[in-house]
Design a protein around this nucleic acid. Structure first.
Ligand SMILES: [Mn+2]
Ligand SMILES: [Mn+2]
Ligand SMILES: [Mn+2]
Ligand SMILES: [Mn+2]
Lengths: 155, 155
DNA sequence: ACATAAATGTAGCATTAGCTACACTCACGA
DNA sequence: TCGTGAGTGTAGCTAATGCTACATTTATGT
């Protein structure tokens, strides 16, 4: 492979050595940190919409985790101002929580639709989207929406 | 255990109440657990290819983490049989590590190409792919490949 | 040769997210 | 009324991933 930076000619000017790559990884880590929060608020909003309430046990069951794990994550939601709850009662979303849930739900659908549109089987699309959705930036979502719209009118 | 969902019709046969959803979340969690390993082996392989060696400090710099963090993750790579290293020398990949690196690199390119193909700007594509790649199943990758191939021949 | 800089290693801490085990509450049926 | 079981809460553990601070080793330059 080509001449390397560390063995580079002494005379070259100091270059930042591409912090770009590091920034990308950093973004992925940041996105990942919100992934759990996002899945919880989306699910809680769904449960409230369908059942009128969201109980810790039900959340745990749907996510496939133990109930203490769900409780601990809900504690984080509360800390971050996304949810509220009081002993032996259900879990509720704050305004911020509801807003986030709406964005997350729309994004989820968009990612799934996109995957299906390019030929991914439905179940794989749903499964993969559950992880991929948290890494789709605004620019990417915009592109997805446009792609789907064009495809729709083009039929 | 009266596993009957409180909202379900009384007469219906016991249904597992969609473990599907839980399984999807479980898959996403599993994928996430390998994400760091995958990024490390890919990067280490690149560094070896380009520089002839991969040093902990360089890996840390590229990933945007502190060097002890990189060292700790490399320790996990070693534990999982993907890499080797000895005090004050570089990091090397095992056969398994090299194989994984190859798969990961190919997958990364495929995901990026796909995003670009549907209109995502290059930098966003690279950035988002860094996280999304770890959640693309075989079925999805196959669909991506086919989509790109068709698109290619179709002009 | 040797002082010093850079790389590497190690210790110790925090947070997140998972688990099991156990304790407490409350709603409901006998 | 009062048990009892499901739901909820709490304690305490693990593992992964991040950090800073400091110690040690290797490499470098004079
Ligand atoms: Mn998700
Ligand atoms: Mn989702
Ligand atoms: Mn990645
Ligand atoms: Mn990658």
């Amino acid at each position: 492979m080509p001449a390397s930076p560390s063995h580079a000619p002494a005379a070259t000017i100091e270059m930042p050595e591409e912090p770009t790559h590091a920034l990308r990884f950093g973004k992925a880590r940041t996105a990942q940190a919100s992934a759990v929060l996002e899945d919880y608020v989306e699910l809680i909003a769904d449960l409230i919409a369908v059942h009128g309430e969201a109980r810790a046990t039900e959340v745990a069951k749907r996510l496939g985790v133990s109930h203490p794990t769900a409780v601990k994550s809900v504690a984080r939601l509360k800390r971050e101002g996304l949810a509220t709850s009081r002993p032996y009662r259900g879990i509720f979303l704050t305004d911020a929580g509801r807003q986030l849930a709406d964005r997350v739900r729309a994004r989820h659908r968009l990612v799934v639709d996109m995957l299906v549109a390019v030929g991914v089987p439905a179940e794989a699309a749903e499964s993969d989207a559950e992880g991929m959705e948290h890494h789709a930036s605004e620019a990417t979502l915009k592109a997805f929406a446009r792609f789907l719209a064009d495809r729709g009118t083009k039929t």
